[in-house]
């Protein structure tokens, strides 16, 4: 269900924890699985659970609790904008509005071409860099201006 490379990455994560605590690697394993597959269908969660020897529902609890896991398909690029108060004071909401207009979608929607999904994020711990957005969970973009947003979208368009 997952590539050898992903499984090797998961094995490296498992090795961080005591031998009888494989479940500790579930957050990393779900992240690795999501990176490979784009989102987490239930079969994938079940696979990860059985790979780690934990009940499927326990893995589902984790996947549904942490909001960076996607239990529904998302576009090729997921853009998450922080609109929490400190960011909002420095344009977080304006940046989100700009993205909505530019992509023609609202939060939790995907562009018809399947390229972009827009999400509203909670505090990312980078309030000094506001406006802040996350691209595909792992890449943080700081001090966003409309020009920089245009530039990022253009780059992602081709990826």
């Amino acid at each position: 269900m997952l590539s050898q490379e992903s499984l090797q990455q998961i094995d490296r994560e498992i090795a961080k924890y005591p031998p009888d605590q494989k479940q500790s690697a579930v957050m990393a394993a779900l992240r690795i699985a999501q990176v490979e597959k784009g989102w987490l269908p239930k079969e994938l969660i079940e696979f990860v659970a059985s790979y780690l020897g934990m009940p499927a529902i326990a893995a589902y609890e984790v996947a549904s609790f942490y909001n960076m896991y996607d239990l529904e398909p998302v576009g090729r690029h997921k853009i998450t904008v922080c609109t929490n108060l400190p960011c909002a004071l420095s344009g977080g909401v304006h940046a989100a509005d700009y993205l909505k207009k530019k992509l023609g979608i609202d939060f939790n929607e995907t562009t018809p071409d399947g390229k972009f999904t827009l999400k509203e994020g909670e505090c990312m711990g980078a309030c000094g860099d506001a406006p802040v957005l996350l691209v595909n969970n792992h890449h943080m973009c700081s001090w966003m201006t409309t020009e920089k947003i245009d530039q990022i979208l253009a780059e992602l368009e081709d990826k």
Partner: peptide
Amino acid sequence: FAHHGYGAYICGEETALLESIEGKK
């Protein structure tokens, strides 16, 4: 070792953080 969260403010609470390292909610 490094362990990452994945989007839950509550894990900043120290016992929630421990639960999270244990691979739970």
